[in-house]
Design a protein around this nucleic acid. Sequence first.
DNA 1: TTAACTGCAAATCTTTTGCACAATC
DNA 2: GATTGTGCAAAAGATTTGCAGTTAA
Lengths: 126, 126
Amino acid sequence: MRYSHQRELILKEVLSRTDHPTAEQICTSLREVCPRLSLGTVYRDLNTLVEIGKVRRVSIPGEADRFDGELGVHQNLFCRKCRKVVSLPIQEDELRALATSCPDVKVENYFLTLFGLCSECAKQEN
Amino acid sequence: MRYSHQRELILKEVLSRTDHPTAEQICTSLREVCPRLSLGTVYRDLNTLVEIGKVRRVSIPGEADRFDGELGVHQNLFCRKCRKVVSLPIQEDELRALATSCPDVKVENYFLTLFGLCSECAKQEN
DNA sequence: TTAACTGCAAATCTTTTGCACAATC
DNA sequence: GATTGTGCAAAAGATTTGCAGTTAA
């Protein structure tokens, strides 16, 4: 992979923010320093950065994807009121105790989707 | 809410299937018995059925939503190879033991998104 | 120099919506 | 008869892609 000014800017932008911006928000911000930056490039570069593990994608049903530079163990809360995504320092094994472990937020629901191979496909791989 | 032939057909279709069909797949299937059924109606009725809790929406990042008539406690696995969604009888507190509790599937990753109110909005509600 | 990257615009895909008509109560 | 639901087509929103031109190695 070759160095690219745009990709570097995009990575820096995501790492410097804690508000889980969308591709569009990243593009708008960066146009102040890079006026010709195109949204297509932002999407392409974000996909690359996610692939190489420098950035995390936060998908919310019915919303544009958000991007997160925080790679440590945490979960995200999507606020249905202000539509912000906030980080919560929840370990996986604390999921059960959700309601009490973070007393100030109000967890009403959560979406879990497992990714991997179903039994048929897992068999075929071997 | 008024009775509707289409909504009833759509509900029956989702309940009778275990393959987590998309709106499009439901529409295609039902056109055999209801040729004029429109995709817009299917989306509208599915949204209603989800709202009243008769059907569950399964969102997968980058994929069309699937719909699930199984309302009991379970989690879904999206197979990145065949793109099928399969039900797994996992309780929440078994999440930690994912890898071992379902030895035939290969869980590689999972996406958890919490929904609710962030601390600021939770405060405002009171 | 050449392969990767970009900007731009058009295309794609999923989902929603406006409107005139039909079905339900 | 009033209102909700439907079909159709167009619109909207997010993301991808084709292509010609630019840039890094």
